[in-house]
Write a protein that binds this DNA or RNA. Sequence first.
DNA 1: GTCTTTCTGTAGCGACCACTAGACAAATCA
DNA 2: TGATTTGTCTAGTGGTCGCTACAGAAAGAC
Lengths: 226, 226
Amino acid sequence: MVSGEEREGGRPAARTRGGAERTAGAAGRASRPRGRPRSFDRATALEKALMAFWERGYEATSVSDLTGVMEIGAPSLYAAFGDKRSLFDEAVRFYGERYGSFGERALAEEPTARAAVERTLREAAAEYTAPGRPHGCMVIHAAANCSTPEVEESLRRRRNANIAAYESRIRADVDAGRLPPDTDAAALARHTGAVIQGMSQQARDGATREELEALAEIAMAVWPRS
Amino acid sequence: MVSGEEREGGRPAARTRGGAERTAGAAGRASRPRGRPRSFDRATALEKALMAFWERGYEATSVSDLTGVMEIGAPSLYAAFGDKRSLFDEAVRFYGERYGSFGERALAEEPTARAAVERTLREAAAEYTAPGRPHGCMVIHAAANCSTPEVEESLRRRRNANIAAYESRIRADVDAGRLPPDTDAAALARHTGAVIQGMSQQARDGATREELEALAEIAMAVWPRS
DNA sequence: GTCTTTCTGTAGCGACCACTAGACAAATCA
DNA sequence: TGATTTGTCTAGTGGTCGCTACAGAAAGAC
């Protein structure tokens, strides 16, 4: 095939030929690609697929659904994106860059973990209910009921990594004295995660009873001191 | 058919003939059921089905999976339970009675909403991670990615009803003076729900941005006052 | 124009889905 | 002993799943 990249299964890899990277050849000779040009825009087709996956989840979105919303035939989909799994992975990556990065941004830009989490929660309320796109977080919802273990595992690791990111940021604030030294960083991070995806989701993802009990105890602090 | 009960589709309804309700006839004549007796215990088969649905969700649990764990043939399943939807509904009802009622019990038995919620959270940490059965809450997880709208709607109403129950109980405590009068009962109820199923899940179920923002603001109260 | 390359549309692959017809088995009733 | 009733077993049904072979269409290279 064109370049040396091949997938493990022997199927040819999805070729990418967007508007930007069409310089080819060895000596920088700017030649337009040979053969019949693609009749659809790859990026917008990917975004349509993302919306479908986000709305209905991985399993419940059939290739027929995808070709419908992307307005292309099945062979074009497979030529451009590989298979359903690869298209989903690429959609999740696109989602992470475009829609799901407000939490990381807050962690990077706010001076304290508290400010970062407060901003994250405020933005999540808006992001998760924004009009014109599916509600909620794609990473949290698209893996449920998934019968493909690899997809489930990949998304689970993303969620746990998010919680770990909160935890390390909180721990850094504790070490720096911006939070009291007796702060239970792990439990606090799990509380933040709980407000985002819930105790039940975390239990499915391997949290222990002790971890959930610590989360529950901290959650009680929101109650008024009478 | 045996009795007048028929389903709308014209298919015969699932007949129940467990160990307790085998008195039949008009004049209380205790006659054992005619015909070949069922070769499996309906209740244990239902519990096996419940575990499968709880573990994998509705869509991802095929009838083939069900007949496997229930150790019966497909015709026996359909004769005893109707169809996959009916079996799932019955399993959810069974789950609610057997595993998912600790929240309602706490609301009924504890003197204040605070105590009820505190106990519920503590018990949830144990229930959601109990060994020997699937982790997490079946009602929260079994509907995700579901391509059957009726199932999704039914479970969504259950979740919203749970939140409404918390809200009314909190409102009762506010009215009775056991909580400060400026308590935002709806937001507090949504916080409790959030710790159980998360902001994202609620956004999928129709919560508005304003509701989620109120939840986020209250969740910040767990942070230490420095 | 012809050749080569690449994409697209039709049409269909085998596998699995939820579900069931029909023959046989096992119980009660007479 | 039949006759009746009901459950189970075998072996499928039509439908959808993810995926693809193949022929034709549309571009550059010559």
